[in-house]
Design a binder for these strands. Structure first.
Lengths: 211, 211
DNA sequence: CAGCTAACTTGCACTCAATGCAAACTCGCA
DNA sequence: TGCGAGTTTGCATTGAGTGCAAGTTAGCTG
């Protein structure tokens, strides 16, 4: 008998197996990217390390880049969820700030081994940087949409985009600065420091916002 | 005797020839992307249409995507230039707003044939969307850096990122909305309407900013 | 103008990501 | 037990992108 949560149906053998393979791929890729570099690691090698056929890799990830972001929409999803479950007494700015803080507190992917590898590759491999920026931008747009839907009277489309742009811009910049100072791997694994920085960034953005 | 501007040294035959070939490539690509679609057009075909060898294409553009953005850093360059040549009496917010308006007024690439094709592909081809978002994001970061450098006392790094994020987010959203309403080609070629929209967006962002 | 150099062009061979297809295999269920 | 849907895999193929080496051309200099 497997312990299981309420609400999540029992994962079948198939699903568990698939999840295990998926994780094996991510781990293998992280290790090899770290050791040999991104461009120097081929999809065939990753697949071989996870003991599956090359062709099968593409049944798990649509592209080589995608394995770097195994749960790419988690951040946007959590943020939007926090916006939906907002405190009705709060205004748009506070709701968004709180949502971003919630993400910093709960995002498990931020402290995964792959996250550390990703941060290092972000600075050196154009393809990785590009993919990351793209995901970031899409997330920002989705969040803006959700925020506008939550405050149809207070915000119009452009206003929501401005607000979201300011806050995510601030958070990004703060994380970027953090990476300048310290080793990427350390940053990725130190969740407390991350959380602290996000909070500082949102506060600073607000001060700029109101001045 | 060729008429030439002051300040720009006479382009040599080599340079003129190279520029002509480059333009031929862009024109050929725009036409074929429009007619057959992006994925359905190969680099070899574009090169053949411009009457050069396939290998030579990569001497002009580093990748197939790059030909869609023949002057990708023009926008950032113009914006930063406007920040550098700012009115010393104005504060950071006004300077940035004015800089974005200047770009909307002078950006020649916005009304090129390739721009129209690009806008259409942006919505349908993931690779194109990705590249565009990536360029956009890099520009945003560069602009934030320039703004902070121009106002070291008023803004810190995170504050500059917040301000820049708000304005560019607003402008993006406004242009996006404009594209929803009308045909992409029309938008690209109607510089007046574009300019008007950018102005509306910055005004709206400011109103949100101050509320 | 002869001739040299550096920049540019090109073909060739090669690597690798990514996809379509068809055959084999396996879990889940009746 | 056996059927059907979901998975795995190999094979063949396409197309982007690179390194190299040989050829071509612009532009300069004596």
């Amino acid at each position: 008998m497997v312990i299981r949560e309420h609400g999540t149906p029992a994962p079948s053998l198939r699903e568990r197996k698939r999840e295990r393979t998926r994780q094996a791929l991510v781990d293998a890729a992280a290790e090899m990217f770290e050791r040999k570099g991104y461009d120097e690691t081929t999809v065939a090698e990753i697949a071989a390390a996870a003991e599956i056929g090359t062709r099968t890799f593409f049944g798990y990830f649509a592209s080589k880049e995608d394995i770097l972001f195994p749960d790419s929409d988690a951040r946007a999803r959590t943020t939007i969820e926090a916006i939906v479950n907002r405190d009705p007494a709060e205004g748009p700015v506070d709701v968004l700030v709180r949502a971003l803080e919630t993400v910093a507190e709960t995002d498990a992917d931020m402290v995964s081994p792959m996250a550390a590898v990703r941060m290092r590759l972000f600075r050196t491999v154009p393809a990785v940087r590009g993919k990351a920026l793209q995901i970031q931008m899409s997330a920002q747009q989705e969040i803006a949409r959700a925020l506008q839907a939550a405050f149809p009277d207070e915000l119009d489309r452009v206003g929501a985009a401005a607000l979201t742009g300011a806050l995510t811009g601030a958070v990004n910049s703060a994380l970027d600065a953090l990476m300048d100072d310290e080793d990427a791997a350390t940053v990725a694994l130190d969740a407390d420091r991350l959380r602290e920085r996000v909070q500082q960034a949102t506060e600073l953005a607000l001060r700029t916002w109101r001045s």
